[in-house]
Computed example of a mutant assay.
Amino acid sequence: ADLPNDAALRQKLSGLRDQATLATGQSMLLQYHGDRIMKALAAKGVAARIVKGPVFARKLYRHAADRPFTDIDILVDPASIGEANNVIAECGFTLGSGEAESHELQEFKWLEKENSSLLIELHGNLVHDTGMRRR
Rank of each mutant, 00 (worst) to 15 (best):
S14V: 10
P54V: 06
I50G: 10
D73K: 04
V87D: 03
R58H: 09
V127K: 06
A100V: 11
R133M: 08
E104G: 04
Q26D: 12
G98M: 01
A48M: 03
Y61S: 05
A40N: 04
C91I: 03
F69S: 02
V46W: 02
L16Q: 11
K113H: 09
S116H: 14
G45I: 02
F56Q: 12
Y61E: 05
E99M: 01
F69K: 00
N125Q: 08
S80C: 08
F56C: 07
L22P: 05
S116Y: 09
Q106N: 13
I72P: 01
F69H: 03
W110E: 02
N5A: 11
G25K: 14
E99F: 00
L9Y: 06
W110Y: 13
P78C: 03
G124Y: 05
I81A: 03
L16T: 06
D35M: 07
F93N: 00
A84T: 03
T94Y: 15
G131I: 09
L9V: 04
F93V: 01
E107S: 12
R135T: 09
S14L: 15
R62I: 11
I81P: 00
I50C: 12
L118A: 06
T70V: 09
D77K: 08
R49Y: 10
N125P: 04
R62C: 06
K44C: 09
A7H: 12
I37K: 00
Q26E: 12
L16A: 08
A84F: 00
A57D: 04
G34V: 05
R133F: 05
M132T: 13
M38Y: 02
Q31V: 06
E114P: 06
P54A: 05
E101N: 07
T70L: 14
T130H: 10
Y32H: 15
E90Y: 04
E121I: 12
E101A: 07
M132L: 15
H63D: 14
H33E: 08
F69G: 01
E104W: 09
N115A: 08
V55I: 13
T94N: 12
H128A: 09
L13R: 02
F69R: 01
A64T: 09
A48C: 04
L16Y: 11
G96C: 02
